[in-house]
């Protein structure tokens, strides 16, 4: 039957048409599409790899950061503790020093007081001695018969100003 015989004209048209579409698509169609898709695939896998590496690096950095943080915190605690110690030590020292100072001042004061006391006592002693000598002198100068009159006179002398007496 006619249906089962290729028609030469149609064969020629088909050959021309198919070769046209084949050549055009083989030159400007499929290689572009496949090339772009492959390029993109490569790019995506590369990017994924890079992202993975970056993630790993980031994880390292994070760990480092945490370590640094921990170290810093330990340092901080240490420093704080040290300063606390220093503080207490300083306070302690200051206290001791103050106490020593105070003690010294007190001791000095006591020494001075004792000295002044001794001086005062010596002065008093001297004055008493002088007075006694004076009185005795005066007594010796006046010969009193009467005992009562003698006492009155001592009283009178004592009542008078020692300077007066001296004079």
């Amino acid at each position: 039957m006619d249906l089962f015989l290729p028609e030469s004209g149609l064969v020629i048209w088909m050959l021309i048409a198919f070769l046209i579409v084949f050549v055009i698509l083989a030159k400007a169609g499929w290689p572009m599409i496949m090339g772009a898709v492959e390029q993109r695939n490569a790019h995506i896998s590369e990017s994924l790899l890079a992202a993975d590496e970056a993630n790993k690096a980031l994880a390292g950095i994070e760990q480092k950061r945490q370590e640094t943080m921990a170290a810093a915190q330990a340092e901080q605690i240490k420093i704080m503790k040290e300063s606390q110690d220093l503080k207490t030590q300083l306070i302690e020292e200051a206290k001791t020093q103050a106490r020593q100072e105070a003690e010294k001042i007190v001791a000095d004061a006591r020494l001075k007081i004792e000295k002044e006391q001794a001086e005062a006592m010596a002065q008093i002693k001297n004055e008493v001695i002088a007075l006694s000598v004076d009185i005795a002198e005066k007594l010796l100068q006046r010969e009193l018969s009467d005992k009562k009159a003698q006492n009155d006179y001592i009283e009178q002398l004592l009542k008078n100003n020692p300077t007066q007496i001296q004079a």
Partner: peptide, 9 residues
């Protein structure tokens, strides 16, 4: 197909 190929190019 050609416009797509052109875009890819």
């Amino acid at each position: 197909f050609l416009p797509a190929a052109h875009k890819y190019k």
